[in-house]
Protein backbone atom coordinates (compact mmCIF):
# COMPACT_ATOMS: atom_id res chain seq x y z
CA UNK A 1 0.00 0.00 0.00
CA UNK A 2 1.33 3.43 -0.98
CA UNK A 3 -0.15 6.40 0.94
CA UNK A 4 0.29 10.12 0.64
CA UNK A 5 -0.79 11.10 4.14
CA UNK A 6 -1.92 14.41 5.53
CA UNK A 7 -5.53 15.36 5.83
CA UNK A 8 -8.45 14.55 3.60
CA UNK A 9 -7.11 13.89 0.12
CA UNK A 10 -8.20 12.82 -3.32
CA UNK A 11 -6.83 13.08 -6.83
CA UNK A 12 -4.97 10.84 -9.20
CA UNK A 13 -2.32 8.57 -7.64
CA UNK A 14 -0.36 6.24 -9.89
CA UNK A 15 2.65 4.06 -9.42
CA UNK A 16 5.22 3.23 -12.11
CA UNK A 17 8.08 0.75 -12.16
CA UNK A 18 11.57 2.23 -12.21
CA UNK A 19 13.13 5.42 -10.88
CA UNK A 20 11.72 8.89 -11.50
CA UNK A 21 14.11 9.75 -14.33
CA UNK A 22 12.87 6.78 -16.38
CA UNK A 23 9.31 8.06 -16.42
CA UNK A 24 8.42 8.82 -20.00
CA UNK A 25 5.16 9.96 -21.48
CA UNK A 26 2.85 7.09 -22.28
CA UNK A 27 4.34 4.68 -19.79
CA UNK A 28 1.93 2.11 -18.43
CA UNK A 29 1.18 2.51 -14.74
CA UNK A 30 1.13 -0.45 -12.37
CA UNK A 31 -2.30 -2.05 -11.88
CA UNK A 32 -3.77 -1.08 -8.54
CA UNK A 33 -6.66 0.61 -6.82
CA UNK A 34 -6.61 4.18 -5.48
CA UNK A 35 -8.74 5.24 -2.55
CA UNK A 36 -9.08 8.68 -1.01
CA UNK A 37 -9.89 9.16 2.64
CA UNK A 38 -9.74 11.44 5.62
CA UNK A 39 -6.10 10.78 6.33
CA UNK A 40 -4.70 10.71 2.83
CA UNK A 41 -4.83 9.05 -0.55
CA UNK A 42 -3.72 5.44 -0.88
CA UNK A 43 -2.88 3.00 -3.65
CA UNK A 44 -2.88 -0.78 -3.29
CA UNK A 45 -1.19 -2.94 -5.95
CA UNK A 46 -3.16 -5.60 -7.77
CA UNK A 47 -0.16 -7.98 -7.70
CA UNK A 48 2.45 -8.01 -4.91
CA UNK A 49 5.26 -5.52 -5.45
CA UNK A 50 8.57 -7.09 -6.42
CA UNK A 51 11.27 -7.34 -3.74
CA UNK A 52 14.30 -5.32 -4.80
CA UNK A 53 12.33 -3.38 -7.44
CA UNK A 54 12.28 0.43 -7.53
CA UNK A 55 8.96 2.24 -8.06
CA UNK A 56 7.89 5.84 -8.51
CA UNK A 57 4.56 7.08 -7.13
CA UNK A 58 3.05 10.13 -8.80
CA UNK A 59 0.20 11.96 -7.12
CA UNK A 60 -1.70 14.75 -8.83
CA UNK A 61 -3.89 16.37 -6.16
CA UNK A 62 -7.17 17.96 -7.23
CA UNK A 63 -5.58 21.32 -6.53
CA UNK A 64 -1.87 21.93 -6.26
CA UNK A 65 1.29 20.63 -7.81
CA UNK A 66 2.14 17.09 -8.72
CA UNK A 67 4.14 15.22 -6.08
CA UNK A 68 6.39 12.26 -6.87
CA UNK A 69 8.15 9.85 -4.55
CA UNK A 70 10.51 6.99 -5.33
CA UNK A 71 10.74 3.87 -3.20
CA UNK A 72 12.34 0.44 -3.34
CA UNK A 73 10.73 -2.67 -1.96
CA UNK A 74 13.29 -4.31 0.37
CA UNK A 75 15.01 -7.32 -1.17
CA UNK A 76 14.71 -10.68 0.54
CA UNK A 77 17.56 -12.29 2.42
CA UNK A 78 18.11 -15.45 0.41
CA UNK A 79 19.97 -18.34 1.95
CA UNK A 80 21.04 -21.18 -0.33
CA UNK A 81 19.32 -24.15 1.31
CA UNK A 82 17.77 -26.11 -1.56
CA UNK A 83 19.77 -28.97 -3.08
CA UNK A 84 19.41 -31.84 -5.49
CA UNK A 85 18.29 -34.81 -3.37
CA UNK A 86 18.61 -37.41 -6.09
CA UNK A 87 18.61 -38.12 -9.77
CA UNK A 88 16.61 -41.04 -11.12
CA UNK A 89 17.57 -43.53 -12.40
CA UNK A 90 19.87 -43.63 -9.37
CA UNK A 91 21.48 -46.81 -10.72
CA UNK A 92 25.01 -46.79 -12.16
CA UNK A 93 23.97 -48.34 -15.45
CA UNK A 94 21.40 -47.17 -18.01
CA UNK A 95 20.40 -48.53 -21.43
CA UNK A 96 21.26 -46.67 -24.61
CA UNK A 97 17.55 -46.02 -25.19
CA UNK A 98 16.98 -44.37 -21.78
CA UNK A 99 13.73 -42.44 -22.22
CA UNK A 100 13.69 -40.01 -19.30
CA UNK A 101 15.24 -38.98 -16.06
CA UNK A 102 14.05 -37.13 -12.98
CA UNK A 103 15.84 -34.54 -10.86
CA UNK A 104 14.45 -34.49 -7.32
CA UNK A 105 15.06 -31.29 -5.33
CA UNK A 106 14.70 -30.83 -1.59
CA UNK A 107 12.35 -27.85 -2.03
CA UNK A 108 10.27 -26.19 -4.78
CA UNK A 109 12.18 -24.66 -7.68
CA UNK A 110 11.56 -21.82 -10.10
CA UNK A 111 10.71 -22.72 -13.70
CA UNK A 112 12.74 -22.02 -16.79
CA UNK A 113 16.08 -23.51 -15.74
CA UNK A 114 15.94 -26.86 -17.52
CA UNK A 115 17.87 -25.72 -20.57
CA UNK A 116 20.27 -23.48 -18.66
CA UNK A 117 21.47 -25.32 -15.60
CA UNK A 118 21.40 -29.00 -16.60
CA UNK A 119 24.09 -30.51 -18.75
CA UNK A 120 24.88 -34.02 -19.90
CA UNK A 121 28.55 -34.56 -20.68
CA UNK A 122 30.56 -37.46 -22.07
CA UNK A 123 33.91 -38.82 -20.88
CA UNK A 124 35.73 -36.00 -22.66
CA UNK A 125 33.71 -33.51 -20.62
CA UNK A 126 32.11 -32.25 -23.82
CA UNK A 127 28.37 -31.59 -23.60
CA UNK A 128 26.13 -34.07 -25.43
CA UNK A 129 24.15 -31.59 -27.51
CA UNK A 130 20.44 -32.03 -28.04
CA UNK A 131 20.10 -35.05 -25.75
CA UNK A 132 16.94 -33.75 -24.12
CA UNK A 133 13.85 -32.30 -25.65
CA UNK A 134 12.53 -29.57 -23.39
CA UNK A 135 9.01 -28.43 -24.24
CA UNK A 136 7.88 -24.83 -23.84
CA UNK A 137 6.39 -25.73 -20.52
CA UNK A 138 8.86 -27.71 -18.45
CA UNK A 139 7.58 -30.91 -16.87
CA UNK A 140 7.50 -30.30 -13.13
CA UNK A 141 5.68 -32.11 -10.37
CA UNK A 142 2.71 -30.13 -9.01
CA UNK A 143 4.84 -29.26 -5.98
CA UNK A 144 7.61 -27.92 -8.26
CA UNK A 145 10.30 -30.03 -6.62
CA UNK A 146 10.86 -32.65 -9.33
CA UNK A 147 11.76 -32.04 -12.98
CA UNK A 148 11.23 -34.67 -15.68
CA UNK A 149 13.59 -34.58 -18.66
CA UNK A 150 12.78 -36.61 -21.77
CA UNK A 151 15.46 -37.75 -24.17
CA UNK A 152 14.64 -36.84 -27.78
CA UNK A 153 12.02 -39.52 -28.63
CA UNK A 154 12.62 -39.10 -32.38
CA UNK A 155 16.16 -40.33 -31.84
CA UNK A 156 14.98 -43.29 -29.74
CA UNK A 157 12.23 -44.68 -31.97
CA UNK A 158 13.76 -47.38 -34.12
CA UNK A 159 13.98 -46.71 -37.81
CA UNK A 160 12.52 -43.21 -37.92
CA UNK A 161 14.38 -40.41 -39.70
CA UNK A 162 15.93 -38.70 -36.65
CA UNK A 163 17.04 -42.08 -35.25
CA UNK A 164 18.74 -42.95 -38.52
CA UNK A 165 20.22 -39.50 -39.05
CA UNK A 166 21.50 -38.76 -35.56
CA UNK A 167 21.25 -42.03 -33.62
CA UNK A 168 20.26 -42.24 -29.97
CA UNK A 169 21.59 -39.49 -27.67
CA UNK A 170 23.48 -42.08 -25.56
CA UNK A 171 25.75 -44.84 -26.94
CA UNK A 172 26.50 -48.21 -25.36
CA UNK A 173 29.99 -48.30 -23.86
CA UNK A 174 29.96 -44.61 -23.07
CA UNK A 175 30.18 -43.02 -19.62
CA UNK A 176 27.94 -39.98 -19.22
CA UNK A 177 27.60 -37.48 -16.39
CA UNK A 178 24.61 -35.33 -15.56
CA UNK A 179 25.62 -31.99 -14.04
CA UNK A 180 23.26 -29.66 -12.24
CA UNK A 181 24.67 -26.20 -11.67
CA UNK A 182 24.29 -24.41 -8.34
CA UNK A 183 23.21 -21.21 -10.10
CA UNK A 184 19.75 -22.71 -10.62
CA UNK A 185 17.26 -20.72 -8.53
CA UNK A 186 14.78 -22.23 -6.15
CA UNK A 187 11.20 -20.99 -5.83
CA UNK A 188 12.29 -18.13 -3.59
CA UNK A 189 15.05 -17.03 -5.93
CA UNK A 190 17.96 -18.46 -3.93
CA UNK A 191 20.66 -20.49 -5.69
CA UNK A 192 21.19 -24.15 -4.84
CA UNK A 193 23.37 -25.04 -1.87
CA UNK A 194 25.75 -26.96 -4.11
CA UNK A 195 26.10 -28.34 -7.60
CA UNK A 196 25.33 -32.02 -8.26
CA UNK A 197 26.70 -34.79 -10.48
CA UNK A 198 25.71 -38.34 -11.29
CA UNK A 199 27.54 -40.66 -13.67
CA UNK A 200 26.10 -43.60 -15.58
CA UNK A 201 27.62 -46.37 -17.68
CA UNK A 202 25.61 -46.77 -20.87
CA UNK A 203 24.84 -50.35 -21.93
CA UNK A 204 22.97 -51.98 -24.81
CA UNK A 205 19.43 -50.82 -25.61
CA UNK A 206 16.62 -52.47 -23.66
CA UNK A 207 14.04 -53.78 -26.11
CA UNK A 208 12.24 -56.20 -23.81
CA UNK A 209 9.13 -55.71 -21.80
CA UNK A 210 9.38 -55.99 -18.03
CA UNK A 211 7.70 -59.15 -16.72
CA UNK A 212 6.28 -59.62 -13.26
CA UNK A 213 7.01 -63.37 -13.31
CA UNK A 214 10.69 -62.49 -13.02
CA UNK A 215 10.13 -60.60 -9.76
CA UNK A 216 11.12 -62.16 -6.44
CA UNK A 217 8.50 -61.51 -3.76
CA UNK A 218 9.75 -61.83 -0.16
CA UNK A 219 6.67 -62.51 1.92
CA UNK A 220 6.65 -60.89 5.40
CA UNK A 221 7.66 -63.45 8.04
CA UNK A 222 6.32 -61.50 10.98
CA UNK A 223 3.31 -59.13 11.13
CA UNK A 224 5.74 -56.20 11.37
CA UNK A 225 7.94 -57.11 8.38
CA UNK A 226 7.68 -55.11 5.20
CA UNK A 227 6.77 -56.85 1.98
CA UNK A 228 9.83 -56.80 -0.26
CA UNK A 229 10.09 -57.29 -4.00
CA UNK A 230 13.41 -57.67 -5.84
CA UNK A 231 13.24 -56.51 -9.44
CA UNK A 232 15.55 -58.07 -12.04
CA UNK A 233 15.76 -54.78 -13.91
CA UNK A 234 15.59 -51.11 -13.00
CA UNK A 235 12.07 -49.74 -13.38
CA UNK A 236 10.84 -46.15 -13.57
CA UNK A 237 11.15 -44.51 -10.17
CA UNK A 238 8.02 -42.36 -10.41
CA UNK A 239 5.80 -45.15 -11.68
CA UNK A 240 7.05 -47.58 -9.02
CA UNK A 241 5.64 -45.19 -6.45
CA UNK A 242 2.26 -44.95 -8.07
CA UNK A 243 1.53 -48.12 -10.05
CA UNK A 244 1.99 -50.82 -7.40
CA UNK A 245 -0.57 -51.23 -4.62
CA UNK A 246 -1.07 -53.83 -1.95
CA UNK A 247 -4.63 -55.01 -1.50
CA UNK A 248 -6.45 -57.70 0.41
CA UNK A 249 -7.70 -60.71 -1.45
CA UNK A 250 -11.09 -58.99 -1.57
CA UNK A 251 -9.47 -56.02 -3.31
CA UNK A 252 -9.45 -53.49 -0.45
CA UNK A 253 -6.33 -51.30 -0.59
CA UNK A 254 -3.92 -51.74 2.32
CA UNK A 255 -2.45 -48.49 3.68
CA UNK A 256 1.29 -48.24 4.10
CA UNK A 257 4.49 -46.70 2.91
CA UNK A 258 6.37 -47.58 -0.27
CA UNK A 259 10.16 -47.47 -0.31
CA UNK A 260 12.19 -47.82 -3.49
CA UNK A 261 15.89 -48.57 -3.09
CA UNK A 262 18.96 -50.22 -4.61
CA UNK A 263 18.93 -48.16 -7.79
CA UNK A 264 15.19 -48.79 -8.32
CA UNK A 265 15.63 -52.57 -8.17
CA UNK A 266 14.07 -53.06 -4.75
CA UNK A 267 10.50 -52.16 -3.88
CA UNK A 268 9.15 -52.60 -0.39
CA UNK A 269 5.92 -51.84 1.38
CA UNK A 270 5.53 -51.32 5.12
CA UNK A 271 1.86 -51.52 6.15
CA UNK A 272 0.62 -48.77 8.50
CA UNK A 273 -0.69 -51.44 10.87
CA UNK A 274 0.75 -54.97 11.29
CA UNK A 275 -0.28 -57.58 8.73
CA UNK A 276 -3.25 -59.71 9.71
CA UNK A 277 -2.75 -63.34 8.62
CA UNK A 278 -4.30 -63.99 5.26
CA UNK A 279 -3.97 -63.66 1.55
CA UNK A 280 -3.03 -60.40 -0.12
CA UNK A 281 -2.04 -59.28 -3.60
CA UNK A 282 0.32 -56.79 -5.15
CA UNK A 283 -1.80 -55.08 -7.76
CA UNK A 284 0.29 -53.86 -10.67
CA UNK A 285 -0.77 -51.33 -13.28
CA UNK A 286 0.23 -52.73 -16.72
CA UNK A 287 1.40 -49.22 -17.70
CA UNK A 288 4.41 -49.64 -15.37
CA UNK A 289 7.49 -48.87 -17.48
CA UNK A 290 11.18 -49.66 -17.46
CA UNK A 291 13.88 -47.08 -18.20
CA UNK A 292 13.32 -47.32 -21.95
CA UNK A 293 9.56 -46.78 -21.74
CA UNK A 294 8.70 -50.46 -22.30
CA UNK A 295 5.68 -51.28 -20.16
CA UNK A 296 4.17 -54.54 -18.94
CA UNK A 297 1.58 -54.03 -21.67
CA UNK A 298 3.69 -53.02 -24.69
CA UNK A 299 7.12 -52.11 -25.99
CA UNK A 300 8.05 -48.45 -26.39
CA UNK A 301 8.23 -49.07 -30.13
CA UNK A 302 6.16 -52.09 -30.86
CA UNK A 303 6.51 -54.16 -34.05
CA UNK A 304 3.57 -53.11 -36.14
CA UNK A 305 0.78 -55.66 -36.66
CA UNK A 306 -1.66 -54.98 -39.51
CA UNK A 307 -5.33 -54.73 -38.52
CA UNK A 308 -4.38 -54.36 -34.87
CA UNK A 309 -3.45 -51.26 -32.97
CA UNK A 310 -1.24 -51.57 -29.92
CA UNK A 311 -1.82 -54.67 -27.85
CA UNK A 312 -5.08 -55.76 -26.29
CA UNK A 313 -5.44 -53.77 -23.07
CA UNK A 314 -4.28 -55.73 -20.04
CA UNK A 315 -6.13 -55.72 -16.75
CA UNK A 316 -4.23 -54.95 -13.59
CA UNK A 317 -1.92 -57.86 -12.73
CA UNK A 318 -2.22 -59.46 -9.29
CA UNK A 319 0.69 -61.12 -7.53
CA UNK A 320 -0.87 -63.06 -4.67
CA UNK A 321 1.04 -63.71 -1.43
CA UNK A 322 0.15 -65.07 2.00
CA UNK A 323 1.08 -63.71 5.41
CA UNK A 324 1.17 -66.09 8.41
CA UNK A 325 -0.69 -69.37 8.62
CA UNK A 326 -3.60 -69.52 6.22
Amino acid sequence: MVTFAGGEQAGDLRVFTGPRDELAAGRVSVLGATSGGRTGVSWAPRYPLQPGQRYTAVWQPLDGDRITATFTVPGLELAATTRVEAVFPSSDVVPENLLRLYIQFSAPMSRGGATRFVELVGEDDAPIAGAFVVPEQELWSPTDDRLTLFFDPGRLKQGVGPNLAAGPPLRAGQEVTLRVQAEWRDAHGAPLRESFEHTWQVVEADREQPRTDAWTVHTPETPQDPLRVDLPEVLDRALLNRMLFVETQAGTPVGGEVTVARGERAWSFAPSSPWAPGRYAISVDPDLEDLAGNSLERLFDEPLVEDQVGRPTLDRLRLVFTVGAS
Partner: peptide, 28 residues
Protein backbone atom coordinates in the same frame (compact mmCIF):
# COMPACT_ATOMS: atom_id res chain seq x y z
CA UNK B 1 3.31 -37.80 -2.43
CA UNK B 2 1.87 -38.33 -5.83
CA UNK B 3 3.64 -36.03 -8.21
CA UNK B 4 1.81 -37.13 -11.34
CA UNK B 5 0.84 -34.21 -13.49
CA UNK B 6 0.28 -33.55 -17.13
CA UNK B 7 1.11 -30.37 -18.94
CA UNK B 8 -1.70 -29.26 -21.21
CA UNK B 9 -0.10 -28.40 -24.56
CA UNK B 10 -3.10 -27.79 -26.82
CA UNK B 11 -6.88 -27.50 -26.62
CA UNK B 12 -9.26 -27.68 -29.59
CA UNK B 13 -13.04 -27.60 -29.82
CA UNK B 14 -14.14 -29.99 -32.58
CA UNK B 15 -17.90 -30.17 -32.94
CA UNK B 16 -19.40 -31.01 -29.58
CA UNK B 17 -16.19 -32.30 -28.03
CA UNK B 18 -13.21 -30.60 -26.50
CA UNK B 19 -9.89 -32.38 -27.20
CA UNK B 20 -6.95 -31.81 -24.92
CA UNK B 21 -3.36 -32.79 -25.72
CA UNK B 22 -0.90 -33.14 -22.89
CA UNK B 23 2.51 -34.39 -21.86
CA UNK B 24 2.69 -36.41 -18.70
CA UNK B 25 5.62 -35.80 -16.38
CA UNK B 26 5.78 -39.55 -15.76
CA UNK B 27 4.46 -42.00 -18.33
CA UNK B 28 5.37 -41.26 -21.93
Amino acid sequence: RNPRNSTITDIELLGDSVYIAGLSNEEF
